[in-house]
Structure formats: structure tokens, C-alpha cells
């Protein structure tokens, strides 16, 4: 099990790491790059908490071998705000009480950021689908969906 070099651009920063084939992207992010905003809720693809954007699309980092992400652009929750300026999705989550324990929040936010990037005025079904890939045990999803809708409105107002 030789380690191999993997090149990742994470939140705009280029990294090179030697990793074992058995390492997942989630492990590399959390344990090597200390980007602990990406959460590990189940490690087998069921909860969605480990979502990151890989070349722009939300994926489950617990199911992605780190070597599979070689050369990819990764965006984690740490890379969503612009300095101290929250992304409209983040701001909407804060304002609408879409956050309770916050463990699902990184995934919910990244999924919503991707949704609004690809579909600026999503309908109710699109928002539900976007939320449906992550389990939230605290909020019952209601405020999360409201926040995504609000963020969509905010984004279209200030292009």
C-alpha cells in the first residue's frame, strides 16, 4: 500500500500530499488539512454531512477516495464566505434560524450554494431535492428550505 502523491486545490489553495489508496477525501480534509468544517456523520454515504463541492458539484467526501480527487478543485464550507462577508446562503441560514446543532449545516449550505449557482430561481421541488441529500435531525428541514428560498431571492436581487 504505497502512498501516492495527490494534488488538490482546496478553497483556492494548492496542496500536494502523499496519501494511501485507502484514504478518503474526507480523511485528508479533516486529518491532513485540518479542515474540520466537513463533518463525518456516518462515513458510508447515508447522512450527507461530509458534502464538499468537487469541481463544482456536491459529492460525499466519505465515499471519494482521495486519489480519485487528484487534480480536482475542492470547495469546503471554509471556502464559502468571502473573508468576513458571508455568502447569501450563509446569511440566510443565520437569519432564518436554519441552524440548530449545526452538524448538517456545512452540507446544507454547500448544496444550496451549488443549487443557486446552477438554478438561480429554484422552485419548491428543486429546493426540497437539494435539501434531501442530507439528514437533519434538529430542524425538520422547514427553516432550511425557507433559508434556501430566501437566499435565492437575495441572490437575484443583488446579482
Amino acid at each position: 500500500m504505497e502512498k501516492r502523491l495527490v494534488k488538490l486545490t482546496v478553497n483556492g489553495v494548492a496542496h500536494e500530499r502523499a496519501v494511501a489508496p485507502a484514504a478518503t477525501l474526507l480523511e485528508v480534509l479533516r486529518e491532513e488539512l485540518f479542515l474540520t468544517g466537513t463533518k463525518r456523520g456516518c462515513d458510508v454515504g447515508d447522512c450527507g454531512c461530509c458534502t464538499v463541492l468537487l469541481d463544482g458539484a456536491p459529492v460525499l467526501s466519505c465515499l471519494v477516495l482521495a486519489l480519485e480527487a487528484d487534480g480536482a478543485e475542492i470547495r469546503t464550507i471554509e471556502g464559502v464566505a468571502n473573508g468576513n462577508q458571508l455568502h447569501p446562503v450563509q446569511q440566510a441560514f443565520v437569519d432564518h434560524g436554519a441552524i440548530q446543532c449545526g452538524f448538517c449545516t456545512p452540507s446544507m449550505v454547500l448544496n444550496a450554494v451549488h443549487l443557486l449557482d446552477t438554478n438561480p430561481s429554484p422552485d419548491a421541488a428543486a429546493v426540497k431535492t437539494c435539501v434531501s441529500g442530507t439528514i437533519c435531525r434538529c430542524t425538520g428541514y422547514t427553516k432550511i428550505e425557507q433559508a434556501v428560498h430566501a437566499a435565492a431571492r437575495a441572490c437575484t436581487k443583488t446579482p
Binding site: 450527507g48 437539494c130 442530507t134
Partner: peptide
């Protein structure tokens, strides 16, 4: 296809 698993899984 859209009824399979979750959006994140469908992206892989």
C-alpha cells in the same frame, strides 16, 4: 435516475 440515492451520490 433522479429517484436514486441522493443528489450528492448521483453526482458520482
Amino acid at each position: 435516475a433522479l429517484q436514486i440515492a441522493s443528489p450528492q451520490i448521483r453526482n458520482r
